[in-house]
């Protein structure tokens, strides 16, 4: 049983400040474009604040906000006749809870930033070309003067290394 008191209810301003990054990122993970994530994040807070809800504890509040955001996201997808990209919401939620549930993803971001430093120059370049420059795989291959298959492997290995690194850091923090 938790030993801490339930938190004091937050004001709307505090609520938005505390949880908006997490909701926005969660929506992005679901597959939202950035602009749609902006809209749904806004709508999520408007709904819950107008309706009122019980701030039982941090985890419950974050979970409730995510659920509202998820429902809004699904509604938008249906209205637009679009398929939902993520079909296993439970798995995604579990992953979110593990890595980003406690701090809206800020900790994960910090760990990832440190882990990026450990990548080879080439691997980091490949990821930057993909995520910063938004290059296609073939453009990345051309840029690095490797085959497409090689570019694919390079990025997969880089991401695996990042995952392992984050896992390791997380374990170390836990211990």
């Amino acid at each position: 049983m938790p030993n801490s008191d339930p938190p004091d209810p937050l004001s709307p301003e505090e609520l938005i400040q505390k949880y908006q990054n997490g909701i926005w990122r969660y929506l992005r993970v679901l597959g939202c474009e950035a602009s749609l994530a902006d809209d749904i994040t806004q709508e999520t807070f408007l709904r819950v604040i107008r309706k009122g809800f019980e701030q039982y504890n941090d985890a419950a509040t974050a979970g409730y906000l995510r659920k509202v955001a998820y429902n809004l996201f699904i509604s938008v997808m249906r209205r637009e006749g679009r398929k939902v990209v993520t079909d296993d919401i439970e798995q995604l939620d579990a992953s979110w809870n593990k890595w980003a549930g406690a701090d809206n993803g800020d900790g994960l971001l910090d760990m990832l930033r440190e882990c990026l430093e450990g990548l080879t120059e080439r691997a980091r370049s490949a990821l930057e070309l993909r995520f910063k420059e938004e290059h296609t795989r073939s453009a990345i291959a051309d840029h690095l003067q490797i085959t497409e298959h090689g570019a694919k492997n390079l990025m997969q290995r880089a991401k695996k290394q990042l995952r392992d690194c984050v896992e390791h850091k997380n374990q170390a923090e836990f211990n």
Partner: peptide, 20 residues
């Protein structure tokens, strides 16, 4: 998806906006 979104935020320019 989680790793991708975080990488986009770190490497790209897609940080969550302040919507307050």
């Amino acid at each position: 998806p989680l790793l991708d979104v975080m990488l986009e935020e770190l490497l790209g320019d897609t940080a969550p906006p302040d919507l307050s």
